[in-house]
Simulated scan of single mutants.
Amino acid sequence: MSMGEMRRIGIVGFGHVGLYLVQQIREEGEKFNLELAFVWNRTVEKLEGIIEPHLQLHRLLEFESRKADLIVEVAHPDITRDYGELFLSAANLMIGSPTVLSDPEIEQKLREIAKTSGHTLYVPSGALWGGEDIQRMADRGTLKGLRITMTKHPDSFQLQGDLAQKNQTVQDRTILYEGPVRDLCPMAPNNVNTMAAACMAAHTLGFDRVIGVLVADPSIPDWHLVDIEVTGTRNKETGQVFSVTTKRCNPAKAGHVTGSATFSSFWSSLLGKHLSA
């Protein structure tokens, strides 16, 4: 694509993040050479009165006719599971629900399609602070451990199975889960995308060796907390171990799955500051 040529963006999903991205493209797209190719939502009525008819995509399988350069999925992991290979065969793809990549078969298929098609698979950093640094450590072989703790009000979780039942009985700060991120993703597909993004950045550890901790805390109705603990190699001379600990306090509306600061992170990712898978 030549300098100054417009990049056409397809938005799949029109929840809070999808709406935000559409607004940003409308307000600042020209400055960054971005324009909307289409907007799709499972419930098309949600687009009425907001998205111009010619930009509405009613049937997702017809996405290719809109000639998008980049498709941004901000809907649900099932969308990438069902359509990810098709998307990547025709355009670059940014996965806003990377918990789907905890399925090793899906991850492998998407990587293969990306190689054969010449398109790129991206994962937005979202609420992951320091993702590019983690990726660089993994690239150098110096990353030895990664632990992520996400703390939210119980109403901000959309959980499944036993985890959902456990969350319903929470009265005080409670650890709902602690263990490999791969096992957590199917139980919290909408809540732990930050952890999934971390697993992609920490590619030498992956979903099986990155440890995720999910905490429900009724005392924080309008905050999402993300604690990241990174462990590196041991200094051969001193025996000291490299480590970094960060704490992100992300403001959030009561009961919302996504914190407010995450929206701007998605926009930055769309502009090119992202993790390539």
Rank of each mutant, 00 (worst) to 15 (best):
A164H: 10
I113E: 13
V226G: 06
N33M: 12
P218N: 05
G255K: 06
V170E: 10
L55H: 11
E85K: 03
I79S: 03
Q24A: 13
T246C: 12
V230C: 00
G141Y: 04
K236G: 08
D103C: 07
E73F: 03
Q108P: 08
K109V: 09
L61M: 06
E107H: 12
K236V: 12
S265L: 11
I51T: 10
H54A: 15
A138Q: 01
G10C: 04
I134C: 00
L121W: 05
G232L: 02
G239M: 12
L225A: 04
L214H: 01
W223F: 11
I148W: 00
P124M: 04
L163M: 14
R26P: 08
I220P: 01
K144R: 09
I148N: 00
L205D: 00
K253C: 13
L61N: 08
A201G: 01
G4I: 03
G10R: 01
D217W: 06
W40K: 08
R8P: 02
E107K: 13
P124A: 09
K144A: 01
C249G: 08
R234C: 14
A91V: 02
G272E: 07
N250Y: 04
R209G: 03
A188H: 06
L61H: 04
L19W: 11
E107D: 15
Q165T: 11
P221K: 07
D183I: 08
D133C: 10
D172S: 14
S2A: 15
E237D: 15
L184E: 06
L21C: 08
A201K: 01
S276D: 12
S269L: 04
A127W: 01
L275R: 03
V241Q: 15
A216C: 07
M200C: 13
E28L: 14
N190C: 11
R81G: 03
G10E: 02
L143P: 00
I71L: 06
K144G: 03
K115R: 15
R209A: 10
S276P: 07
T149H: 00
S89D: 08
S125A: 11
G13N: 01
